[in-house]
Amino acid sequence: MTRVFWKVLKEGRVSLTLAAVVEILSGALLQSRLEALISLPILLAIVPPLNDMAGDLGTIVVARLTTAFYLGSIEPRLRENKGLRMNLSSLMVVCVLTVLYISMLSTLYSTLHLGVFDAGILFRIISIIMLAGMTGVFFTLVCGTLLSVASFKKGYDPDTMVMPVITVIGDFLSIGSALLISRMFGLV
């Protein structure tokens, strides 16, 4: 095996192990709060799509920036960088469109599968999806950008080093914002 194989293994091993430990703990945390979440199934149902969205958009920003850094089309610096701003704002637009879609799916799920059509609860659930989704994604994108720039500057490949970590950060931030905002709306 040549340099590429060992470089991927060396860089990937650390971040993946860290990600696995945090994910196991997150799984245990969710399991320990399962009863509270089961009491309002619609709330439980929005956790996976919010997680998916934050992780996905995090991986997109890291993948796009890594390619741009290697090609030299975006400078790996944080200040006065139009390329970074353009990527972040485009992905926030994708986030807004996706939370609208998740809101629509959740309303259908609640009405058709759970047989619940309570306008008050649905309004609060949709507000939670919007606020938690956008907050979680915003901070995930910021973390993805900061870590990609730092990793590239240090000579590590962000595709290998940052990618596994950003999905965990996305999970943590989206679950955290969903629980926090649900609490503010008096649902948990």
């Binding site: 990937g12 990600a19 991986t59 595709d159 290998t160």
Partner: peptide, 16 residues
Amino acid sequence: NMRGAVFSSFGARIST
């Protein structure tokens, strides 16, 4: 999550 992380990373490296 690990499947997603390993193969998103693999996909991104191939893409780069």
